[in-house]
């Protein structure tokens, strides 16, 4: 008798605020979050607004992947198994939230104040497979040409 087929492998986002559509990768993954009536914006879901405390004034929003480098560091010493150095930045998205990100397209050995404000664009890729065999997808940024 044929063995029952293994459960279908899933494609999981590395963080809850990255949403992966069913038709990924034909349809791109995107950041989502909530926006409070007070104007505060958050990545992912919130129980209440961290700015004003309201619990019932949220609307869900989809954030675009364009933004700019606010600040950065270049991490040389890191956990075993990771490729280093890497440019670890805080990206201000045009849609009004900030996100931690690796940025590609810069020389990590030449950190430079000229990187401030550089335009970046989000892309996603599979970075690992989890112990159940599901793909793990992460969001990264590259310099916009």
């Amino acid at each position: 008798m044929a063995q029952e087929t293994a459960t279908e492998k899933k494609v999981n986002p590395i963080v809850p605020f990255l949403r992966i559509p069913e038709k990924y990768p034909e349809e791109p993954a995107y950041f989502w979050g909530v926006k409070c009536a007070c104007g505060a914006k958050f990545l992912g879901a919130r129980t209440a607004c961290g700015s004003c405390g309201a619990t019932d004034k949220f609307e869900e929003v989809r954030y675009g992947g364009d933004g700019e480098i606010y600040v950065f560091s270049v991490v040389h010493q890191t956990v075993p198994g990771l490729e280093a150095p890497y440019v670890a930045a805080i990206i201000d998205l045009d849609d009004g939230v900030s996100v931690r990100a690796n940025v590609y397209g810069l020389d990590p050995l030449k950190p430079n104040p000229e990187w401030f404000g550089k335009r970046v664009k989000m892309f996603t890729e599979k970075i690992r497979v989890d112990r159940e065999g599901n793909d793990i997808i992460a969001a990264k940024f590259r310099i916009q040409s």
Binding site: V15, Y70, S73, V75, T78, L82, A88, R100, N102
Partner: peptide
């Protein structure tokens, strides 16, 4: 851990976090 964001989506390690804080002052 497999779902760790370190080195994939920026850094949460202290030297980098405080590096960024200093870089903000540079900016």
């Amino acid at each position: 851990r497999e779902y760790s964001t370190e080195g994939v989506m920026g850094t949460g390690l202290m030297p980098g976090v405080f590096g960024q804080a200093g870089v903000e002052h540079m900016r």
